[in-house]
Amino acid sequence: MPSSSAAISCQGVTKSYGANLALRGIDLEVPEGEVFGFLGPNGAGKTTLIRCLLNMIRPDGGNLQVLGRCPQMDSVAVRAETGYLPGELNLDTALTVGQILTLFRRMRGGSVSPRKVNVLAERLQLDQSRPIRHLSKGNKQKVGIIQAVMHEPRLLILDEPTSGLDPLMQREVLTLVQEAKARGASVFFSSHLLSETEEVADRAAIVRAGEVVVSGETSALMRNALVRVSVTLERAIAMEVFDHLPNVWVMANRNDRDLALQVRGELDALMRALAGHGVQRFEPVPATLEDVFLSHYLRMAS
């Protein structure tokens, strides 16, 4: 078996659909045993990359490795060690939950015990006697999650895993992700919900229009993010002052005294500019992954 320290390795992966360039040279590395958040808005190329990883579509260029194997040349071996939850989950509505889970279990070659499936169904409060056609989106998503994790794969590829789930079940799914990590599995976690990615991901990459715009440790990304600062001044301040501060943006302004600002990097310059205007309140809000995401989008847009 090929050995590699990377669960997923992409170098210069490109993919186009006719004139539409979906992936423009994606470079990323997902270390084994980590949860990797893959962030981006709809249409950014997240699902396209995932479908390349599982050999459903073939990249036009670049190099892909999944668990040390080429997914195009060795796709069966890759899929045997991978659990996949598609972003658009569609199940055979003629079956019941129990029947479809039995089918999925058998398609894994009988390596999963019925007991394991029952435990997961119970944990996610999923009634196996119900027909798929009567399930809500959230319950269908639970079926998708069970089939992805039931064989305890080395790599979990989850495309928007908490979509349609209520907050309690979202938490349960994030717990499953953490449990997978605890037993040494790698998790590739595609989402546009930054809060959950921030909670579970060791590393993250932000993708935009088929390109990775930033990637790294989640904590490091947040350190470099925009900081939101709420300020109340005793005396009004001229807005032109902020024009001379390159990393400060005024997001909201009331009477030139109550301001909401966004700052990248050090706050020293801002504090110097505010001095002399009677600072009554100065509240920096800790950055979230949302801020990282927005800061990169604002930068690209500007």
């Binding site: 069966v76 899929r79 045997a80 989950l89």
Partner: peptide, 14 residues
């Protein structure tokens, strides 16, 4: 066309 093949093809069958 029903969007079901993706999942079925994620299983280890050539």
């Amino acid at each position: 066309e029903q969007g079901r093949l993706d999942l079925l093809m994620a299983y280890p069958l050539s």
